[in-house]
Amino acid sequence: MRNVLVFRTNINSDQRIHRAACRLCKLRGICRWSIDLEDCDCVLRIETESLTESDIIRLLTKAGLQCTVLN
């Protein structure tokens, strides 16, 4: 069963998108991901079968990006 995880981020530039993409594409368990640059919260949506919100936050924080759960 796929879960959709939704986050508020500071991924709002080509450099930050590239930084996030390099990490997200290497993770097993991500089926699909997208960033909504039109939204003021730069919303990151991830479809996953196995990863948790904490996994994603930890990964992106290590990459120097801000990421918090969006309820």
Rank of each mutant, 00 (worst) to 15 (best):
M1Y: 03
M1P: 03
R2D: 04
V4Q: 14
V4L: 14
L5Y: 03
V6A: 08
V6R: 14
F7T: 00
F7P: 02
F7K: 01
R8K: 15
T9A: 04
T9K: 01
I11H: 02
D14R: 13
D14W: 07
Q15N: 10
Q15S: 14
Q15D: 13
I17H: 11
H18R: 11
R19L: 14
R19P: 00
A20D: 00
A20Q: 02
A20K: 08
A20S: 09
A21M: 06
C22R: 13
R23N: 14
R23F: 12
R23S: 09
R23D: 13
R23K: 14
L24G: 03
C25W: 01
K26C: 08
K26E: 15
K26Q: 15
L27Q: 15
R28K: 14
R28Y: 10
I30F: 06
R32D: 12
W33H: 11
W33Q: 04
W33S: 06
S34I: 00
S34H: 07
S34W: 00
S34C: 07
S34V: 00
D36F: 02
E38S: 14
E38D: 15
E38H: 09
D41F: 11
C42D: 03
V43A: 01
L44T: 01
R45C: 05
E47A: 10
E47P: 00
E47V: 01
E49Q: 08
L51S: 06
T52K: 14
E53L: 02
S54E: 15
S54V: 09
D55S: 10
D55N: 15
D55P: 02
I56P: 02
I57F: 04
I57Y: 05
R58D: 13
L59V: 15
L60D: 06
L60F: 06
L60C: 10
L60T: 03
T61F: 03
K62N: 12
A63Y: 05
G64N: 12
G64E: 10
L65K: 01
L65D: 06
L65S: 03
L65E: 07
L65M: 04
L65H: 03
L65A: 05
C67G: 02
C67D: 07
T68M: 11
T68I: 10
V69Y: 08
V69W: 09
L70I: 02
N71H: 11
N71L: 10
N71C: 05
N71S: 12
